[in-house]
């Protein structure tokens, strides 16, 4: 399972970088989305995966029964997803506005501030 995840993460990072290097700003944003998903999956995979054992303590007990999944990576991923969601909402508005103002989605046409 870990090996499979490692490959999946690798492919996701590869796709993200490929998309980000393309000229269209829409593809750039898609690349950013994939990138954040790849990072989230990495956190999830690297901190060890346990199957089917939610980290909940049954009523009346002080400790969980048996081995449970580590809740912290899940909390981290959840936080990261929420943040990525906010950033994504902003990026979508940004490229929409940028398209309206610059009237192109070609990054090569957006060089006014570089020189």
């Amino acid at each position: 399972m870990e090996t499979l995840m490692a490959y999946a993460i690798g492919v996701l990072f590869g796709c993200a970088v490929y998309m980000m290097l393309r000229r269209s700003i829409v593809k750039l944003v898609i690349g950013l989305i994939i990138l954040s998903n790849a990072a989230n999956l990495l956190i999830f995979a690297v901190s060890g995966m346990t199957r089917g054992a939610p980290p909940l303590i049954p009523e009346g007990l002080q400790l969980p029964e048996g081995a449970v999944a580590d809740p912290l990576p899940q909390a981290l991923v959840l936080t990261a997803i929420v943040i990525a969601f906010g950033v994504l909402a902003f990026s979508v508005v940004l490229i929409h506005r940028a398209f309206e103002v610059v009237e192109t989605d070609d990054l090569d046409q957006m060089k006014d501030t570089d020189t």
Partner: peptide, 13 residues
């Protein structure tokens, strides 16, 4: 930020 997050994940691992 994505790089930072990945590094945090690896550190936790």
């Amino acid at each position: 930020s994505a790089l930072f997050l990945s590094a945090i994940g690896l550190t936790y691992g």
